[in-house]
């Protein structure tokens, strides 16, 4: 597995707590340094996913809030 490889998941349409769970499930399956791109439209998760990333020690790369939709980029640290 190469570094900087991007893995994309969509949580569009999902409700609490699924976007958080799916993000965590994806991170668990990844190698360190790989990048996870999470797309979604659940507003509370836009706040809760970055907080969970902080809690679990991964690196938040960017948050792109496009209004109805958002995209969060995370680098898996360990």
């Amino acid at each position: 597995m190469g570094n900087d490889e991007e893995i994309k998941i969509s949580t569009l349409g999902m409700n609490c707590p699924k976007p958080l769970i799916e993000t965590r499930k994806a991170l668990n399956k990844m190698q360190p340094n790989q990048i996870l791109v999470v797309e979604g439209d659940h507003r509370v998760s836009l706040v809760e996913i970055p907080q969970a990333i902080k809690d679990t020690g991964h690196e938040l790369l960017s948050i792109d809030d496009q209004g109805t939709k958002w995209v969060i980029k995370i680098r898996k640290v360990k």
Binding site: P17, L20, I21, T23, R24, Q51, A52, D55, T56, G57
Partner: peptide, 9 residues
């Protein structure tokens, strides 16, 4: 439980 697991608890 699942929310906690997602937050590393």
């Amino acid at each position: 439980a699942t929310g906690a697991a997602a937050k590393g608890i």
